[in-house]
Design a protein around this nucleic acid. Structure first.
Lengths: 170, 170
DNA sequence: CAGAACTTTCAAAAAATATTGAAAGATTAG
DNA sequence: CTAATCTTTCAATATTTTTTGAAAGTTCTG
């Protein structure tokens, strides 16, 4: 396989994977394209290479910037903006972890927290207790995982690697 | 808030959250409904409580069974099937982890693995190396996370809790 | 085996999401 | 200030995903 071909293949596959993990195909493709480009690309280059419209390119580039996976670059003497993907895997991973924490874990905690204020004199005691117990367990578990992600976000790669070694030894 | 009301609220919220983490609203609702039901429910009860069609109920119940989050129950003397959700948070968590590993991590490994067979005499040497390096890093990182999930899947809760304590101490 | 009681399938319809492209908004240069 | 160049917005459109419901399939009962 040739390099150019490999890059294209990677972009397409990365896009297809996106949908498995809740990201739109195009957003994943834009990310992949920037990941395998040696130089920052302009919006027009992204549009052209992926065959998408200007609006679409703009929207997804912006979303990637929100995720912290892409940044705007200004070249001096150049009017337009360029976009560059973060290439360091550790940073990519922590950005994704952080975003998923915000989107997936914290909303659960919020919902479960509200469930605690039940006051029902009518209800069957055992049933009420069962419900409360379940909510508490859900909260505990989610809270624990949330704290791991938080820790991860603030740690550095060496910490993580060390941790892994420990985990794998057992 | 009353118990019944709380349960409904939980079901609705859980459903809304589902879309944040790549599961359809209805599937998440069915799961929530079964989680907060003290007794197993029949397909008809699920249909009725969530106002969904028979086909939809069937589909989502099946998907939940695939995920290992719900199981069929046969009551003796009863013709129809009942459905019961796993309520143990540890089991719920490992099932979800295992499923996501399969859907999110392993496909990445597969794609990246294919990228290794590049043979391009034409291409710029530095560019080729950069691409290969990136693919390797992606593979290493994903592989590591994949192994954690695998480990998690086979471990028990006490192991996990112990691990957490260690993580949090640092 | 026939009929009743359920469950599963799947093509069509509906709903939710993503994309387009033209117009409006910025920003810089002259 | 005006024109030129580039970015952002958003209503209309297209695509994808989910849901429906009726028909086909299955399994049990008598």
């Amino acid at each position: 396989m040739e390099l150019k071909e490999a890059k294209e293949q990677f972009i397409m596959s990365w896009g297809a994977l996106g949908s498995n993990w809740g990201v739109s195909k195009t957003m994943a493709q834009v990310h992949a394209l920037l990941m395998v480009s040696n130089a920052p690309l302009s919006a027009d280059e992204v549009m052209e290479q992926l065959n998408i419209s200007r609006g679409n390119a703009n929207m997804n580039l912006r979303a990637l910037i929100d995720w912290g996976l892409v940044e705007k670059i200004h070249k001096l003497g150049e009017r337009r903006e360029f976009f560059q993907a973060e290439k360091d895997m550790w940073k990519i991973a922590t950005r994704i972890a952080s975003e998923r924490r915000k989107r997936e874990l914290q909303p659960i905690l919020k919902v479960v927290d509200q469930m605690k204020e039940i006051e029902d004199k009518q209800a069957d005691k055992a049933e009420l207790d069962a419900f409360k117990k379940q909510m508490t367990e859900l909260e505990n578990f989610t809270g624990r995982v949330d704290r791991i992600f938080d820790r991860l976000d603030r740690a550095d790669e060496r910490w993580f690697t060390g941790l892994l070694t420990k985990i794998m030894k057992r």
